[in-house]
Design a protein around this nucleic acid. Structure first.
Lengths: 199, 199, 199, 199
DNA sequence: TATGAATGAGGGTTCATTCAT
DNA sequence: CATGAATGAACCCTCATTCAT
């Protein structure tokens, strides 16, 4: 990478970091381009050399952060001996939930913005960033020798929506119960969804 | 009701209607107070006689619309002979899903804004508006003679979050599948959640 | 006084009290008619039955409060045996300064608004309110048997302006020195002004 | 100075000039930011690049105008042969009074806003603007070989407060007498204050 | 007299975007 | 590529005043 390109990447990363910090602390609506460039230490005009607008940089961030989240969970999974697919899924979800418990602002940011649409888009856009292990995880899930799922996409969709929406409330507001209290019921439900989709 | 009070209610309703129309067509962020009062035909200052700000009127609308949604479903249920609690819940959910299929802008509005927190708040604030049957439905569910649920609040929480988040994607974007295609899996999952919470 | 008239006076006084409380705590600029009527407990329209606007009620208050200030000082003077005109003036001024030290918000209100113009107007409008002893004090000062002043109005003008402007800074901000430290120099200057105006 | 910086100074000066013109003609309360930028010929947002709010630009103006006032008086003093400190002070005051007689709107603006606090602040902030001769004048007064004053700051404070408050009334409203009629008494009082502070 | 709902002009302030440097 | 001064539309909100009741 040339010096100039490295410089550009550094500017871009700086803007991404500043935006993430502000989005998670103040919220997207209350964050202005001015805030981002000021925190980032670049000029206002520079922002527009890298991103179209606030929502463009937000989408980049969601993809990046969601990818990191799954990536870490996958890494952790690799270090275990779990081979049972049901346990693998539970492990991944549990790991992600734990990550989000430790970084509630990330949860706030992800939950408010991560929809199935973006999730799928991120799955497809695997080329852009090497951090995105999502694609691998998904295919790992689908193309197994030991288990075949009926309508695996619907299954995964229901699981992801159930987890993301219940965790949002449980982790951030302990409503209706604390996340640790919710987990047994949640994991039980997930296992059941999977079992009922197993042929 | 005096003429003056009737006039006031009319103004308030006019503002609520205008706001709902704009929120569902343009989104809340893109809707300004100016837009609302202009559509409503009242003066700008009048808005502030009835609501604190844009988010105040939004909350009133969510409560009102969610209440109407459940109210209609409850009415329809009364006309059936269903007495089994599992079938009752499925009926209510199916009815609400069908209502939302016919009014996608309402779905867009409700989904983006209805959280468990607001749901509970709405449940509690029964006195304000006679449209809110939620309280009745909830208690109908909990205090049954035939069935006792373990942790009914967690159960209801999971069902509501699962339904609202999956329907959002399925109805509006047919992602990952059309709502009608999703229903069997969704209802199956719901029934299972309930069964596993039955003592 | 009829019951109706008593009721009216009560409303008027209530408005005056509320306005004074708000003017001294928030400042005139930041006080709205709405604030006044709300604190006063009367309807908005009622305000306009008694006062033209915010500045009308302010002027009434200045006259009233300034009159009370001088009235109290005069009362205190009566209880002393001071007969020397120089000492009488110093006594009055000292007494007023002490009153203002105890009620700094009153000082803030009076100082910002009391000009020689209003002072003279208040002197003249003796009929309106029995609280206004200013007229008596002034004539007491002028028409003495023992001492005759050259240009007594200029003398009084200079004294009042000197006292009011220096006390404002000294009492409220202790700038350039505390009021007690200032007093000797101030009183010395006042005595000198008087002596040089004595024929 | 680069072209850009010159352009910026021009914008800032343009805003200051417009604000001064409006403050003196309409008063600060009745002057809006909109008025200032319109008169200045710049965009509304530009105002906030240079000043925090209306009161920020007011303070800048007071410092600037007060500095110019004293600066001109000091210049005039240099051209005389006066060396006696008492006569110097009287000369400065007389010169300033005369300037204010010729520019009553300036008097109105200065008097309403110039407090001892701002006066001292202006004295201290000498670095910002080369127009501010106040510091020199003050030290010229204090550190003399021929005369030593007891508590010179109190003395100066009393003189400034006496002059500014009496002149306000006399120049603008000829109350209680015209400024020219007041001068002898005023200067006499000032001289006496100084003498009594002379050790 | 007394009320208080309604008005709507106008206030201060923000901010995405542009473009000359 | 990078800058940051300048823009001006658009925002939210306040408030003195009116007038039908």
């Amino acid at each position: 990478m040339s010096k100039l390109e490295a410089n550009k990447k550094q500017k871009r990363d700086s803007l991404l970091d500043a935006a993430f910090s502000l989005f998670t602390s103040k919220g997207i609506n209350k964050t202005s381009i001015s805030d981002i460039v000021q925190k980032s230490g670049v000029a206002k005009g520079t922002f527009y050399l890298y991103f179209k607008d606030k929502y463009d940089i937000r989408n980049m961030l969601i993809a990046k952060k969601a990818g990191q989240l799954f990536g870490k969970a996958d890494e952790a999974l690799m270090k275990t001996n779990i081979s049972n697919i049901y346990d693998e899924v539970i492990f991944i979800i549990d790991n992600i939930i734990n990550q989000l418990c430790l970084d509630k602002s990330l949860l706030l940011f992800i939950s408010k913005n991560l929809s199935w649409g973006i999730f799928k888009t991120t799955l497809i856009n695997t080329s852009e960033d090497k951090d995105l292990y999502l694609y691998n995880i998904y295919y790992h899930l689908i193309n197994r020798e030991d288990v075949t799922f009926k309508e695996p996409e619907i299954m995964l969709f229901m699981i992801i929506e159930l987890v993301s929406s219940t965790c949002y409330s449980a982790i951030l507001y302990s409503e209706p119960v604390d996340i640790e209290e919710l987990k047994p019921y949640l994991f039980d439900t997930i296992k059941n969804i999977m079992k009922r989709h197993t042929i």
